[in-house]
Design a protein around this nucleic acid. Structure first.
Lengths: 134, 134
DNA sequence: TTGACTAATGTAATAACATCACATATCGAG
DNA sequence: CTCGATATGTGATGTTATTACATTAGTCAA
């Protein structure tokens, strides 16, 4: 069962910062936004992020070294599909989606090759519809 | 037509270093291996890598901040499929593969959402067959 | 050849991202 | 209360990447 996690003070602060943000934030941007709340060192942010990532409440975007609050209020227990991110390089907006066929194809490859996957990153960089037409 | 690129001295050194390597290397590891050839600063490596990435001769692994020589002697002109990487966290070996269905599914999503993709990253982290059974 | 342009290179400094090491505090179980 | 586990505070350090500026090398036209 996926209980709603009790967040600690720092985890709550970091999560709220990410939730309020328009787009992804770097750890150091989060730090700066939380100076007023007593944050002084990167580690305070990274430690909170680590837990939030564990809980599936936050995603890390590897290609831009940044973090976003998870868009879906999932139920992580079921629905183990891989999540893909489309990141707009103009406005920074991130769209999150999950595709069963992609998930399945990846699993097929890993199964056939005896590869035990632990984490999969799918990130599409480009320009979103809004920025493309503007 | 994709002409074989004339590489400069530094590009050649960096490419050869990556080609000889068992697995992916960080820019700073490459730098260290090229000290004997007169390399002194990170920028010498990053500049060469930038070109090699342009030419499609090298890939960047976003999830581990490292670089590998491209496994396929492709023909980049055709075959615009997205490339996926399976990265073993035990031994560092990287397997490269391309899946038309995944490529197509991603394109469907981007088309439907008016997203103009420029680059796509697919990286599977885990443990390879050899390390899994060992 | 000269001059002017472009691409490549060299170098130092700095920025951006992330972790280590160690001390202190908080909280629940027994 | 006391022990152990988890969370936190803090400084230093490690790792990755870029900026800024000077220099060198190659190309091509007049």
């Amino acid at each position: 069962m996926t209980t709603a996690h009790e967040l600690t003070k720092n985890q709550t602060l970091v999560f709220n910062t990410l939730s309020r943000a328009e787009g992804p934030l770097s750890a150091y941007t989060i730090l700066d936004q939380l100076r007023g709340d007593g944050f002084r060192a990167p580690l305070q942010v990274y430690r909170a992020l680590e837990k939030l990532l564990d809980y599936g409440m936050v995603h890390r975007l590897e290609s831009i070294n940044a973090f976003v609050a998870c868009a879906h209020p999932h139920n992580h227990s079921h629905n183990h599909g891989m999540i893909a991110f489309a990141i707009c390089e103009k406005c920074g907006q991130v769209s999150e989606f999950s595709d069963d066929i992609i998930t399945q194809r990846v699993r097929e490859w890993t199964t056939q090759n005896g590869f035990k996957q632990t984490k999969t990153t799918i990130e599409i960089r480009g320009v979103c519809a809004a920025c493309g037409t503007a």
